[in-house]
Design a protein around this nucleic acid. Sequence first.
DNA 1: ATTCGTTATGTTTGGTAAGATATAACGCTC
DNA 2: GAGCGTTATATCTTACCAAACATAACGAAT
Lengths: 109, 109
Amino acid sequence: MEIKSRLWIEKEGKPFIGFGRINLLKQVDETASISAAAKALKMSYKKAWNLLNEIETLAEQPVLVKNIGGKNGGGTQVTDYGKSLILQFETLNQNCINFLEEEYKKLEL
Amino acid sequence: MEIKSRLWIEKEGKPFIGFGRINLLKQVDETASISAAAKALKMSYKKAWNLLNEIETLAEQPVLVKNIGGKNGGGTQVTDYGKSLILQFETLNQNCINFLEEEYKKLEL
DNA sequence: ATTCGTTATGTTTGGTAAGATATAACGCTC
DNA sequence: GAGCGTTATATCTTACCAAACATAACGAAT
């Protein structure tokens, strides 16, 4: 028996960042490519692009720097702001997990 | 911009109780009827029954007392144990919300 | 100019989950 | 015994979301 949680942050009622999106951002950061990140996470490029696009349209600062064409066809870099989103969400998530683990011990189920 | 969360408790890798199921349990407790609870939550009787059945099969103590036939066709009561599940989950959930609200203030997004 | 791998975007297809429908058993009431 | 409203359960249909497919633009390299 174990406790599970999912958290996310909304903006204008729409999902801004959550587990899946942060994971995707991390992959983009590692691979410097949306398509490579999508492949690594076994999702379609289109889905990955859509998710990233939603993040970008809701964010107040640029999250990605994209290059179309050119050497190796282009690529995508995650901005410092984007990286801070990753870091902040991950620590938040971990803090939540730790908190719930403690609370969970108090229960009698 | 706001933070959202969903938590649930699993047993043997399967969902035991969560937001939706606890809500359903509450309705059953209020209406003393699975079918009335389903109608109130605008879900099919079948779905409600399935959800409750999963809770019951995973729980170690009885959660519901059901009567088929008889006056008014029968009905369903939530046991004390079932009520304790509701109460414990709801306080856990509220504690988590309060915790996240505090953590959220620390972020810079 | 051609090739290449990427970003960008529309369209179509398909698999799954939700809903609708159907049927039976039960036991009190009348 | 007939009727009623409930629990219980199977099957069938539908609607929706996700995946697959298709196509174009781009720019460096050769």
